[in-house]
């Protein structure tokens, strides 16, 4: 039994009149809308699996051109991911920590490959190496156009932009205070970067590497246009899918697609586990 003095300060009208509705419909709506997309992705994978048999899959794996494409895919994606992080870390760090004239332009340029259609990236690379400087570079250094190095360059051009974006977020979320303290404790700027910033950013760097690797693995448009699709030379797994499809060999295309999915998923799982472990150790 409530007495007058037990009544809430503002009277009971506010506490009583609020309808006691459930949160469930809202959560169900969220789940349904989001779930549709998750189902779509799961459906894609299931369809791939259903459309192939262990025999076709094994036959695809045993095929020499597909093996060659698999190795080139693994090799080029790994080189690309290393290069993307190698270049992306300094660039993202500079963009995150310093102010300089024309910074907005640099930020804009770095984002260009993200929004550009992949085929246009390939075409632009082709045109770049048709210029006098480009030709001179290919003659004196090494050839990119329709060559293995071209596969890496095409992948690198696109995925570095993504790596920089991801690394920028990493450096933006790390407090510059740690670096300041390291400076007062006797470090140079470079020393503070190596001893403090880089180790503190390791999870973000791992994530950027993972992202770059996975995207490089699936890069198709710029690779096809710039490096071509020569069997045993510049053919990577996405190119194989395209070549097999265009010759009407759907079974082989699906088998290779599934292989691509399996490799990508496996590496993502491994790297994610490694990333989390590196962060928690």
């Amino acid at each position: 039994m409530f007495t007058e003095s037990d009544r809430p300060l503002f009277g009971s009208m506010y506490t009583d009149s609020m309808p006691h509705s459930s949160d469930r419909p809202f959560l169900i709506a969220l789940g349904l809308l989001g779930g549709l997309y998750v189902l779509l992705v799961a459906g894609l994978l299931v369809a791939d699996v259903l459309h192939t048999s262990p025999d076709t899959f094994a036959a695809a794996l045993a095929s020499p051109p597909i093996r060659s494409a698999l190795w080139l895919s693994l090799l080029s994606s790994s080189i690309t991911a290393i290069l993307a992080v190698w270049v992306g870390v300094p660039l993202a760090y500079l963009l995150s920590r310093s102010r300089f004239p024309g910074k907005w332009l640099v930020e804009l340029l770095v984002d260009v490959p993200v929004v550009l259609p992949p085929v246009v990236v390939g075409l632009s690379l082709l045109l770049l190496f048709q210029t006098t400087t480009g030709r001179w570079f290919e003659r004196t250094a090494f050839p990119f156009t329709y060559a293995v190095a071209g596969v890496v360059l095409a992948q690198f051009t696109v995925v570095t932009a993504l790596a920089v974006r991801s690394l920028r977020v990493t450096f933006d979320t790390l407090t510059p205070r740690s670096e300041d303290v390291a400076l007062t404790l006797g470090c140079t700027r470079a020393g503070a970067f190596w001893r403090v910033t880089l180790p503190e950013a390791r999870r973000g760097i791992m994530a950027a590497f993972t992202l770059a690797w996975a995207r490089a693995m699936g890069e198709f448009g710029p690779v096809l246009v710039f490096a071509g699709a020569t069997r045993y030379r510049t053919e990577v797994l996405p190119t194989t899918v395209f070549l097999e499809l265009s010759t009407g060999n759907l079974e082989a295309a699906v088998a290779v697609a599934l292989l691509l999915v399996a490799v990508a998923v496996a590496v993502l799982v491994v790297l994610r586990a490694a990333g989390v472990k590196a962060g928690a150790s």
């Binding site: 407090t175 205070r177 740690s178 300041d180 303290v181 390291a182 400076l183 007062t184 404790l185 006797g186 470090c187 140079t188 403090v196 503190e200």
Partner: peptide
């Protein structure tokens, strides 16, 4: 900063 030999404790501690 390295040449000044000062001990500095920032507000948020900024532990490594």
């Amino acid at each position: 900063p390295a040449g000044r030999n000062v001990g500095y404790v920032p507000q948020d501690a900024a532990i490594f």
